[in-house]
Design a protein around this nucleic acid. Structure first.
Lengths: 246, 246
DNA sequence: TGTACATCAGTGAACGCGCGTTCACTGATGTAC
DNA sequence: TGTACATCAGTGAACGCGCGTTCACTGATGTAC
C-alpha cells in the first residue's frame, strides 16, 4: 500500500475533524481497531477476520472496506498503534526519570516497557512475537518501531554524559561487529562508544527476552512473582551495562 | 488428549516396528509431520491445515485421522519434536564441551541453540514465539521443553564445581524471588546457590531473547553479521554469569 | 501350513461453517454557486 | 440563503474458496487356531 493511500485512510485522524461525517469516520475507524484488538486476543493475528470485526460492530462486512482497503492494512494499523504505544510508554519513563541515577532510570524504563506488555499482552505478542506468516510489514511501521529503542539509547547517552556509564575496557570488538556498531553509532547514538553500544544491545535483548520468555509461558512453575524477578534482573543488567565488567 | 491415546499414536515409533503395517504406519506418521513442518513455514501454526497436509501427501483428508485424532494433536507432536530437537542439540553441546573452561562451554551451548533456531526458524517460532491462540499445550510437552534448560543448569553446576563460577556477593534477594529460586534449586539444581541461579536466569533470558529479537527481525538494519554479534554477546554474558559482578 | 476371522488403512461424499473481496445500489451528507 | 450536484457511507447478494470432522464403505494385512 502506498503512503498516499495510507494517508488518505488516516488523514481524518491526524487533525481535529471538521465535519460531522469526518467525526463519524474518525470514531468508526477507532471502533474498528478496538474490535480488531479484541479479536487479536481471542484468535491471534493470523486469524484476524474483517467479517468478524464487521459482525462485532453490527455492520455489513463490505462496509469495513470504506475504512481499511484490506485485512493487511488493518493489521498494519494495529502494529503501528502498538509500536507507538510502547514507544510512548518508554519515552514517558525516560522523561519522568530525568536527573535520577542511571541504574534507576534503566530499571524504570524496563519496568515501563514490561508494564505495557502485561497490560496489552496480545499487542505485545503481535509486535514482539513470531511474525505473522504471509504478512510483510510496510515501511510505515519502521519509525514507530524505532521509538522505544531510541528511548533506551537516550538513557545510556545520558549515563555517558553524567559519567555513570563507563566507556569500559577498550576491548577489541570483532571486526564485523565493530562495523555494525559504528554505523549504529553514526546513525542513532553519536555519544555512545561502540563497546558501550555492545553492552547496551546485550541489556536490550535481555530486557525484551525476559519479557517475552515470561509472557510466553516459559517461566511457568519457576517464577511466581514476575514483577519482583524482572525488576531485580534489570537492576543487575543495568549495573553490568554501567560498569563494563562484561 | 489422554496419555493412553497419545501412546497409542506414537507407540509404533517407540520401538522397531515388527510388521509391514507397523513400518508403513511409522513412515507415514513421519511423512505427515514433515509435511506439516513445511506447512508451518508457509502459513504459520495457527493456519496449519490437516487438509493441506493430506493434499500434499496425495491422500484423502480423512485418512490423516488414522494417524492424528485432531489438528491440535498434530500441533502437539510438532511442538514435542521441536523441544526435543533443541534439547538434544543443547545436550550434545554440553557433552562435547565437557572439561573445557566454563565461559567457552556456555558460548558453545548458546551457539548450538542459536544454530538450531537458524536452521529451523519456524519450529523455533512455534515453541519460542507467541503462543498459538486457542491451543493449550498438554502435559506431554513439559518434559521435552525442560531438556534444554536442564542442559544450561548442568553447565553452570559444572562451573560451580570447578570453581570457575563464583558464588558471588551474598546479595540479599527480594523475598519472593528468593523463595522461587529456592524451589528451583531444590527441584532442579541443588549445587547452584540462589544468587547464581538469579544470574543464570538473566543470562538465559538474554540468550533466548537475543535469538528471538534477531530472528523476529528487530535487528534488521542494525546487525548484519548475526553469528559474530551473538557469540560476542554470549561471551560477555558468560563472564558476568561467572564473575558475579552484577 | 492353511483357513476363518478380526483388525486396520484409506476412500469419497457429506455436513455446516467461515473467509476476503467485489459490485451495483440507495440514501444521506457536504460543497460550489 | 437556497438549490443542484458531487461525494461518500453503508447495504446485501454473490463469487469462489478452504476448513475440521464424521461416516459407512472396501480391500488389504495380521493373527489365532
Amino acid at each position: 500500500m502506498s503512503r498516499a493511500v495510507l494517508s488518505k485512510w488516516y488523514g481524518a485522524l491526524m487533525s481535529a475533524p471538521r465535519t460531522a461525517r469526518a467525526r463519524a469516520r474518525a470514531q468508526l475507524t477507532e471502533d474498528i481497531k478496538a474490535s480488531a484488538r479484541s479479536q487479536l486476543a481471542e484468535v491471534g493475528a493470523s486469524a484476524l477476520s474483517l467479517r468478524a470485526v464487521a459482525r462485532d460492530l453490527g455492520m455489513a462486512s463490505s462496509a469495513v472496506y470504506r475504512y481499511f482497503p484490506s485485512r493487511d492494512s488493518l493489521l498494519t494499523a494495529l502494529i503501528v498503534d502498538s509500536f507507538s504505544a510502547v514507544g510512548e510508554a518508554a519515552e514517558a519513563a525516560v522523561a519522568t526519570s530525568a536527573g535520577q541515577p542511571f541504574v534507576d532510570r534503566w530499571v524504570q524504563l524496563a519496568v515501563a516497557i514490561r508494564a505495557w506488555a502485561v497490560g496489552h499482552p496480545h499487542e505485545h505478542a503481535l509486535v514482539y512475537g513470531s511474525p505473522v506468516p504471509g504478512y510483510a510489514a510496510p515501511r510505515d511501521t519502521v519509525d514507530p518501531a524505532a521509538r522505544v529503542s531510541l528511548a533506551g539509547l537516550q538513557v545510556v547517552a545520558d549515563g555517558i554524559a553524567s559519567g555513570e556509564v563507563a566507556p569500559g575496557p577498550s576491548e577489541e570488538l570483532p571486526a564485523p561487529l565493530a562495523a555494525d556498531l559504528a554505523r549504529l553509532r553514526a546513525e542513532s547514538a553519536p555519544a555512545i562508544p561502540e563497546p558501550v553500544l555492545a553492552r547496551t544491545l546485550l541489556a536490550w535483548t535481555a530486557l525484551f527476552g525476559a519479557i517475552s520468555y515470561e509472557r510466553f509461558g516459559h517461566l511457568h512453575g519457576v517464577i511466581s512473582d514476575g514483577d519482583t524477578w524482572f525488576a531485580h534482573e534489570m537492576r543487575a543488567a543495568a549495573h553490568v551495562l554501567a560498569g563494563g565488567e562484561g
